[in-house]
Write a protein that binds this DNA or RNA. Structure first.
Length: 99
DNA sequence: GACTTGACTAGAC
DNA sequence: AGTCTAGCCAAGT
């Protein structure tokens, strides 16, 4: 349910699933994510693309994110700007994100 | 059912 | 800010 052009951290997903401390498990389970899941919008808490067994996957993710208009700063996604806020979903942030 | 592994995080140096 | 360590949860052996 993460909207295009935005990203969420593993911890966020875990929290939404009711397992606030299962961020690590989120990544594990996501290894076998079914088609249709915007897995590329999930990044680590530092806004970076987490390392995995298959390095090519990281590349693909970077490309997909760029394709959605997400600009990377120093190799990481500026969470202050692109982090998906599940509670404010639908609210107009007017392009800029407030605290 | 116990042990290991890993697409994570938060806190301390 | 970058690096290291210790908890955490679920899956695969």
């Amino acid at each position: 349910m993460i909207p295009p052009g935005q990203v969420a951290t593993y911890g966020q997903i875990a929290a939404l699933a009711g397992r606030a401390r299962a961020a690590r498990a989120v990544g594990l389970v996501m290894r076998g994510c079914p088609p249709g899941v915007p897995w590329h919008r999930v990044i680590n808490h530092q806004g970076g693309i987490s390392k995995r067994a298959n390095a090519s996957g990281m590349l693909a993710q970077r490309v997909l994110l760029l394709g959605e208009g997400i600009r990377l700063r120093r190799g990481r996604v500026p969470l202050d700007r692109y982090r998906w806020d599940a509670h404010a979903r639908g609210r107009r942030t007017n392009g800029r994100r407030e605290a």
